[in-house]
Design a protein around this nucleic acid. Structure first.
Lengths: 350, 350
DNA sequence: TGCACTCTTGCAAGCGCTTGCATTAATTCT
DNA sequence: AGAATTAATGCAAGCGCTTGCAAGAGTGCA
């Protein structure tokens, strides 16, 4: 009883069937359903009516195949091998949501694939397999060069991440350097003396934020202390243990620039656990502006990434590339959003 | 200069090309590349070698078309019309991530579409259009009956949500009733006298949680007070304004059962804003167990949904359905995770 | 009435791959 | 050595749709 059945029971009528019902040829049906002016209005209406009442739905797989299009875009999160679970950072999710919306508006679907094209162990990149018309990389991870090679080779690729000056490939990203600088400057302006940095410097976006961090310190006549640069992954659990060390070395610092809001949350949790107060004892500034950041206590001061704008641009540029144009990179402003975790306006006790 | 180019410049070789290079027929190439025993090992190796070195990649669109398969599953979040932004609740995201993983393991891709099949205004359900082999609904939203109709009609559909007794369609979900009951019982056991409920009762999952809430109260000889049942959407911003009313009526309650962690976060933010303490003045219990819940202050007591298990089962059942078997519904245990926001073990002051 | 048109419609090829069946080549058996 | 197998390959149809081109049917005009 376990043999596979081919019971595509219903509504797998083809255009041929409709043609037969309408007493016309298949091509006429095709044109009628496409609303072509070529077929007489009367016939067109009749055919459409028949199609509707008989519950016909066009086989888009076949259609797309004939047109050599797919109307789907592959979205890849170039995270490390393993589960996608790791991207549960709300930032990525929001980006995904925005992309789905923007692509949808333009008639495209979004295909999440599980592996980047250079992943040897797993088969099938939907894009090279012609199952997608283009690809969007969300973040560069540790694969900046692979992405660049891939993009150079295949065109029809845009990536969200850190744009470098001599980039010949389309990358859209926030002004990470500026954001990092402003975040740091803000804490300095509040009188914070020594500020720690939390983040994974092997990721280009993060290293840009560090860049800004560093330049702000230097502009203030300070230097970056090795001890205060802590490597921390995006994942909140791991971030929490990674930043554990921080609380140990208090009071060698009185401010933290966390390279993502999730990391900021982890850091705050850590400090709290050790009895330190945020922002009284330590200022914390995050990055991203995730939705819940405003509702925590303390609410998180952060650098906002204009993610909806970003999604729109990514999609626009990619579709332009698909149309044969050359997409252009862009850097989006990253604005400082001041809330409670930095202790704004309050002079720290010590 | 803006005419579209067809510059699929490279690597769009077809099997015919490879066949020519190898001096064999197209069918032999097809079989060789599929690793068929039908073709001599020697030829097979030679063909594979040629394919590899010439950078050939099989056109999966064509392949799938020929096979009448797509190896992609459509995932639909039946949220209200508008942007997908609304699903930025980490719970949905985590579900999405798990589904991507699980589908990936089994060789399927995940297609996010923006509109449910019954959305008139927007064309194209990938599934009915034969661009997907099956569909997973994540949550039922306000569309339980549409989903059921759709599933009955098309088979090859599974949904995450609230299973009702006489369900003839495959739905996998948490034990919402039990979870709601345990959450409430716990607060009662801590001595809380009057507990509010926050959530959108028009959603089946939530109404089940309310069911549990109610039964716990009744078992304790209490009744549900209308004033303490507040309608709140999932979105954190909206939830915050929706729950605003609560703080006003304190101290008519001393506990809150929030039907999702995001709502719990919003509620806590609200109470705090009015100078109320959690858990000292008010106990709060959430639902979902989102990753950041453990790292907030207070950390959130919640009902954990076994989302990874859920994803696995959803995929298993759907693929079974695709194989012609009959998928079976299942209810997953929902476990209470006690943290700080309920004030566990502490007797409330008043 | 006949010719040149314009409208509608149909024919058939083609998209790149898979696969049942026929064909040929190699092998084994009597 | 010839017949009967078996192994390796090729032929051609087909998946459901689109579309260039040809053909048929009206229409207007001389």
């Amino acid at each position: 009883m376990t043999e596979k059945k081919q019971d595509q029971s219903l509504s797998n009528r083809t255009m041929g069937d409709i043609a037969r019902m309408a007493g016309v040829s298949e091509s006429t049906v095709s044109r009628a359903l496409a609303g072509s002016e070529l077929v007489a209005e009367k016939t067109r209406d009749r055919i459409q009516e028949i199609a509707r009442t008989s519950g016909f739905s066009k086989n888009e797989q076949a259609r797309n195949f004939a047109l050599r299009k797919t109307y789907t875009i592959e979205v890849i999160f170039p995270i490390e091998r393993g589960t996608l679970q790791q991207v549960s950072d709300p930032f990525f999710v929001d980006m995904l949501a925005v992309l789905t919306d923007e692509l949808g508006k333009r008639g495209y679907d979004l295909l999440m694939s599980r592996s980047p094209p250079w992943d040897e162990e797993r088969p099938g990149c939907a894009f090279t397999g012609a199952r997608a018309d283009g690809v969007i990389f969300v973040g560069q991870g540790r694969h900046r060069s692979e992405i660049r090679d891939f993009a150079r080779l295949h065109k029809k690729v845009v990536t969200w991440g850190a744009a470098l000056p001599n980039e010949d490939t389309c990358v859209i990203g926030s002004d990470n350097v500026g954001g990092g600088r402003r975040a740091t400057e803000h804490m300095l302006s509040l009188g914070r003396q020594s500020i720690a940095f939390l983040g994974d410097l092997s990721l280009p976006e993060i290293s840009q934020r560090f860049e800004g961090f560093k330049s702000a310190l230097e502009a203030a006549g300070k230097t970056v202390s090795k001890d205060l640069v802590i490597n921390s992954p995006f994942d909140i659990e791991e971030a929490r243990s990674a930043t554990h060390i921080l609380a140990d070395i208090y009071p060698s610092f009185d401010g933290i620039f966390a390279s993502s809001d999730m990391i900021a949350i982890a850091a705050i949790a850590n400090l709290r656990q050790r009895g330190l107060r945020v922002p009284e004892d330590v200022s914390v500034v995050g990055f991203d502006d995730i939705p819940s950041g405003a509702h925590m206590s303390p609410s998180i001061t952060t650098v906002r990434q204009k993610i909806r704008t970003a999604g729109k641009i990514l999609v626009d540029q990619l579709l332009a590339a698909i149309d044969g144009e050359t997409p252009t990179s862009e850097i989006l402003p990253a604005e400082l959003v001041i809330r409670q975790s930095c202790g704004s306006g309050r002079i720290p006790a010590n």
